[in-house]
């Protein structure tokens, strides 16, 4: 079927994400400095550069690409983001078929969200990356029910993730070191939700290319 996503998409996704995260490095550092330890920009940049360095352009399946990217993130990122994104990508890889249609794509994104929640134990509204992943999965599901192509499913997910990230500005942090700030965390956008929005935009961009 036209529009199915392959290993080439997964490779393009990881490359685009690495580029975006390198460009957004300072933004993510600033966001994390406001309510955390300021390492998110550097960690994401470092982690995705390592992912790109380890990419196998001849990988046969999206599963290989995503699982290997996940393992790389877990072993190279020394902050919470490594285990979180690493688990997300490994679970996404496990759920991915050889060719990802819109139904499978919803399963892949759901698996990523479940991975993040299994690892980080955060709920919606805790001001974490779950607040970007969760609306993204819901939007993907709705788009798929409306008969969207994989590309349009990803566009819907990316746009919902961005809105979800913006909505974290008004939230009180209940997870991680930001939670020590309590009410003082309000007014700042969560860095993990922000990087999730960037990464899902990359997924859509890679599918459009």
């Amino acid at each position: 079927m036209a529009g199915e996503l392959t290993a080439a998409w997964a490779v393009a996704w990881m490359r685009d994400a690495a580029g975006v995260l390198a460009r957004q490095r300072e933004e993510l550092i600033e966001l994390d400095r406001a309510i955390g330890d300021g390492d998110h920009g550097e960690n994401m940049d470092r982690g995705f550069q390592a992912v790109v360095a380890g990419l196998d352009a001849s990988a046969a399946s999206p599963k290989e690409v995503l699982s290997s990217a996940g393992r790389t993130l877990i072993s190279t990122v020394g902050g919470a983001a490594g285990p979180l994104y690493g688990t997300a990508l490994m679970r996404a890889g496990q759920a991915a078929k050889e060719r990802i249609d819109a139904d499978n794509l919803v399963a892949v994104l759901s698996a990523a969200l479940e991975g993040v929640q299994a690892r980080g134990k955060a709920q919606v509204g805790d001001k974490t990356m779950v607040d970007a992943w969760s609306p993204a999965v819901e939007a993907a599901r709705q788009a798929n029910e409306g008969g969207a192509t994989p590309l349009d499913v990803l566009r819907a997910a990316a746009s919902a993730a961005e809105q979800g990230a913006e909505a974290t500005v008004g939230m009180v942090a209940r997870k991680g070191r930001a939670s020590y700030l309590g009410e003082r965390s309000v007014g700042h956008q969560d860095p993990g939700a922000t990087s999730t929005a960037h990464i899902l935009q990359s997924a859509a961009k890679a599918a459009a290319a």
């Binding site: 919470a80 285990p83 690493g86 688990t87 690892r119 980080g120 070191r177």
Partner: peptide
């Protein structure tokens, strides 16, 4: 701290 927990669980 919290993210050490995630590292150990991984």
């Amino acid at each position: 701290l919290g993210s050490a927990t995630m590292t150990v669980e991984s």
